[in-house]
């Protein structure tokens, strides 16, 4: 039972990270109807920016961890958001009114560009960081197994919850959120009513990238490493999460993220680590067969 609870905690933490990335996929899909294949690599870039910022801050003599973390978070979000903006501007905007497959291929190309840019500029080797946040609590100790809740895990979950609250506020209460939802429904009509569609779409990419940067930073804190290839698998899994939750649905993305995180953790813990990704993808396929619109997606009525 203790082992179960430990895995539950681990799964929820991992799921929070997937959920943060999944929101970026789901937002972009909702507004422009395309899979932003480069989003996983934006997450990876976010991890790198966090790593480099952290190194600089430490080397200029900052020692107070909370301040360092806050600064790293802000820099990573800002710079990665600019990456998101640039990717949209270069690779997607010229193709917005184009055929369906062109933006998808362009996105795949952009994904190659980003991951190989990181490889070329930062080298192919894995970059480890020493544990930044240490310590934790023992929740329950039955003698032979102790349920641990580490401080890193608390930071990850708390950050996710806070950002999610802020994000929900933005989408539901601000003018930008209203514009975004209007563009999701009907871009032409939104434009006629004075919504700046280009700007709204840009902002969607910016926010998605900022959240991915947070996920990248959390990943760095939690696993203590980044490498140029991590965007691909994490990206596919986050997209899986978005689809699982019902693509286009924001709470669905978070729910799907948690589900994927839990599935992966429990599969690793009880069955085999090697096949954890196979399990995640199989679940995706099974869910889509029986619930083609995901957990929280709106059912699609066939129009004849």
């Amino acid at each position: 039972m203790d082992y179960f609870f430990q895995q539950l905690i681990n799964g929820l933490v991992l799921g929070s990270i997937y959920g943060l990335i999944a929101i970026g996929y789901t937002m972009v899909y909702g507004i422009v109807g395309m899979i932003n294949f480069a989003h996983g690599d934006i997450f990876m870039i976010g991890g790198f920016i966090a790593l480099i910022t952290f190194l600089i801050l430490v080397s200029i003599g900052l020692t107070f961890i909370p301040v360092i973390l806050l600064l790293v978070l802000l820099v990573a979000m800002a710079v990665t958001a600019l990456y998101g903006w640039t990717v949209e501007r270069i690779a997607y905007r010229p193709l917005r009114q184009s055929f369906r497959l062109a933006p998808m291929l362009s996105a795949i190309g952009m994904s190659f560009v980003l991951s190989n840019f990181a490889q070329v500029s930062q080298g192919a080797r894995v970059k480890p960081v020493p544990p930044i946040i240490t310590g934790g609590y023992t929740l329950h100790d039955s003698g032979n197994f102790a349920v641990q809740l580490s401080n890193v895990q608390i930071v990850v979950v708390v950050t996710t919850v806070v950002l999610l609250a802020a994000f929900t506020y933005i989408v539901s209460r601000t003018r930008f959120g209203r514009d975004m939802r209007a563009c999701e429904q009907d871009q032409t009509m939104a434009a006629l009513l004075g919504v700046d569609v280009d700007r709204t779409i840009s902002m969607t990419f910016v926010i998605g990238a900022a959240l991915a940067a947070v996920a990248g930073m959390m990943y760095l804190l939690y696993y203590g490493l980044v490498d140029f290839f991590m965007g691909f698998i994490a990206g596919i899994k986050a997209f899986t999460a978005a689809v699982l939750g019902g693509i286009g649905s924001l709470p669905g993305a978070m729910l799907g993220g948690l589900a994927i995180g839990l599935i992966e953790t429990f599969w690793s813990a009880y069955f085999s680590v090697e096949y954890k990704d196979v399990a995640a993808f199989s679940i995706l396929i099974i869910v889509l067969i029986f619930m083609p619109t995901g957990l929280l997606g709106r059912p699609e009525v066939e129009k004849v």
Binding site: I236, V278, L288, I289
Partner: peptide, 28 residues
């Protein structure tokens, strides 16, 4: 068979997942 009812990007992602499953099974 499983993807008969899927459309568009759902089909894309399931085929992608299928490709990865085959690769991972071969790898492991």
């Amino acid at each position: 068979f499983p993807v008969l009812r899927l459309r568009g990007d759902y089909l894309a992602i399931v085929t992608l997942a299928f490709g990865e499953i085959i690769r991972l099974v071969i790898l492991n």
